[in-house]
Amino acid sequence: MFSLPAVRYLPETADHAAAIEAIAAEAFGPGRFARAAERVREMSPHDENLSFVAIFDGVVVGSVRQTPIAIGSRACVMLGPLAVRPVYKGQGVGRRLMALAEAAARDRGETAIMLVGDRAYYMPLGYRPLPAGSVTMPGPVDPARILGLPLVDGGLEGLAGRVRSRG
């Protein structure tokens, strides 16, 4: 086992890419490439300034990425993937990565974060379901898994439309 304080949290750099891919492959398998969220990531690259890694003993053990997107006419970021190696799950690594991602997005002036994920995990972190049918992903997705986090008062109001690249 390890001591949680021994885990370091750093902004993602290009040097972390291979380790992050390995963690995502382990966590989500090859089926991850068929998901609607992957279609979004194909449209727009993630932003390393909004993405973080957890490192233990010199090894990347978790990561979170955020991608600048637009939903309809509104700018926001899409969080994901969040992945932590199984042996480090349940130690608060994922929650700490989420907190860092939220703070970075807020500091940059973003108004909302959207993700596709498990309600049981994300709702205690402040995420809430977006109205069914309000967000159109570039592929099939369970609308109950589309969640949002306001970063400013009213940050989710009027967040509706097709998910697309910001550029």
Rank of each mutant, 00 (worst) to 15 (best):
E12R: 13
T13P: 12
A14D: 14
D15K: 12
A18V: 13
A19L: 08
I23K: 10
I23L: 15
A24N: 14
F28K: 14
G29W: 07
G29A: 11
G29E: 09
G31T: 15
F33A: 15
A34V: 10
A34C: 13
R35I: 07
A36P: 12
A36I: 12
A37S: 13
A37C: 10
A37W: 02
R39H: 08
R39P: 00
V40N: 01
V40F: 09
R41E: 00
E42G: 09
E42T: 12
S44H: 10
S44F: 00
S44I: 02
S44Y: 01
S44T: 12
P45L: 00
H46Y: 08
H46R: 10
D47K: 07
D47S: 13
E48T: 05
E48F: 03
N49L: 05
L50F: 04
F52N: 06
F52C: 07
I55D: 11
F56I: 07
F56S: 15
D57H: 08
D57E: 14
V60Y: 04
V60E: 12
V60H: 03
V61P: 07
G62D: 05
G62A: 05
S63H: 14
V64T: 12
R65T: 14
Q66T: 06
Q66R: 04
T67F: 00
P68H: 08
P68M: 10
P68D: 04
P68G: 05
I69C: 02
I69A: 01
I69N: 00
A70G: 03
I71S: 00
G72Y: 00
G72K: 01
G72T: 01
G72F: 00
S73Y: 05
A75C: 07
V77H: 02
M78A: 11
M78E: 02
M78H: 03
L79D: 03
L79P: 14
L79S: 11
L79H: 03
G80Q: 07
G80F: 03
P81M: 07
L82Q: 09
A83M: 04
A83Y: 01
V84H: 02
V84I: 06
R85H: 13
P86Q: 10
P86I: 06
V87C: 03
V87I: 04
V87M: 04
Y88I: 04
Y88N: 07
K89V: 08
K89F: 02
V93N: 02
G94D: 04
R95Q: 12
R95Y: 02
R96Y: 00
L97Y: 04
L97P: 04
L97Q: 05
L97V: 10
A99D: 09
L100M: 13
L100D: 13
L100K: 08
A103G: 11
A103Y: 02
A103P: 06
A104S: 13
A104L: 07
A105Q: 08
D107Q: 11
G109H: 11
G109R: 14
G109F: 07
E110W: 13
E110C: 06
T111Q: 15
T111H: 14
A112D: 01
I113H: 01
M114D: 00
M114T: 15
L115S: 05
L115R: 08
V116H: 00
V116A: 12
D118N: 12
A120T: 09
Y121C: 09
Y121E: 08
Y122N: 08
Y122A: 04
P124A: 03
L125Q: 14
L125H: 15
G126K: 12
R128A: 11
L130A: 06
P131A: 13
P131N: 07
G133C: 09
G133T: 06
S134R: 11
V135A: 01
T136L: 12
M137E: 10
M137K: 10
